[in-house]
Design a protein around this nucleic acid. Sequence first.
DNA 1: CAAAAAGTGTACTTAGTAGTACAGGTATGA
DNA 2: TCATACCTGTACTACTAAGTACACTTTTTG
Lengths: 205, 205
Amino acid sequence: MTNPIGKRELNKARKRAEIVDIATRSFFEHGYAATSMSAIAEELGGSKATLWAHFASKQDLFAAVIDLQVDSFSQDIDEVLTSQTYSVPALRRACARFLECLLRENAIRLFRLVVSEGGRFPEIKEMFYSRGPVKLRKCVIEFFATRVSEARATELSRLMIAMITGFRSDILLRPSSPSMAEREAFVDSLVEMITRGIPDQPTPS
Amino acid sequence: MTNPIGKRELNKARKRAEIVDIATRSFFEHGYAATSMSAIAEELGGSKATLWAHFASKQDLFAAVIDLQVDSFSQDIDEVLTSQTYSVPALRRACARFLECLLRENAIRLFRLVVSEGGRFPEIKEMFYSRGPVKLRKCVIEFFATRVSEARATELSRLMIAMITGFRSDILLRPSSPSMAEREAFVDSLVEMITRGIPDQPTPS
DNA sequence: CAAAAAGTGTACTTAGTAGTACAGGTATGA
DNA sequence: TCATACCTGTACTACTAAGTACACTTTTTG
């Protein structure tokens, strides 16, 4: 076969993905320091040599894990608000979805990991920040800007995002996860509060 | 001397405090797993035997560290809202102070540590949660309840606290800390948003 | 089929970990 | 003064980690 992608490269990529998958679970569960490469190799079924054939070091593997998760998170965020115009129902829908994204198991674990290891791995912190929060804010500002001024949209975005991420902050430390009803009640009062600061009809220019 | 507190106990307490102090810095800087008891002993100047004379294990020492920090954080929180009645200036002052408390170096590091190790040490998570967030919310509800109904006060507290902790969430991941002006602007818009949902005058019962 | 590339198993090096044991030193308290 | 309680240094056990070396087998490719 003279395929541009031979079986060689395909298998290699598959193996790599498998390693990243196992490593993700381990880093998520035990944190960076308490995850051991030997344990990953064992779970993989293969040997350590295979691990080092794909990643030069533990840090390299960690970076690959975070990169993948950030990507998936970033995609989730993207899908919520693309080409939406402001309306109260659209706002409510968006808030509920954002909250859902942020409370997903993987998103919580990613956040935990970035918060705890960010100090020691600045490049990981930046990777997450630019593709996560920064992007999110841009989307939300655009959404509000379809109804209010850019300055006001920025202000509202900041408050709205703060409320949603603040809710997550609490979840991180709570013994049990919040009920559906609690989440809905929170979104309702959040939306009510935000809409108080927005005129019912678009101001004609 | 027949003092109830002899030099013996005093010295012991001092040594203990010194150990906790060094351990605090190390846990804050490197996290739980990456902090070594040997390193603490070395920095202490003493020997490992001394460490184990005061704390039965690394986990014990860690718990003592968190306990002390939670206490100090809890006291800070207490001082902000004691016997305050609702008014817009009081609200603004309280928000500014809460934000200041939450953004203190030690509070941030404590939060980081509790978030990252909370999964592995549930008792630490609970210790922090009950003496931190739970207490804070109670104070804020009481404050709002001097003006609005209890139910409404609960709702407003949730939103207000979410906004403030959400601001911190962002800080945790940002490359640089926020300017004074940014903090003030945030508090201003937060206060404006909250006060929209509160009558200017107390409703006569 | 044969060469090349990748994966595997095992054993290894080097270094660091929590925690222990013990002998000698030093401050305290009666 | 003198026993007690604590502190210190050193050496130790038992274990685990990251990363390497190497001979071996399997799979892919031409």
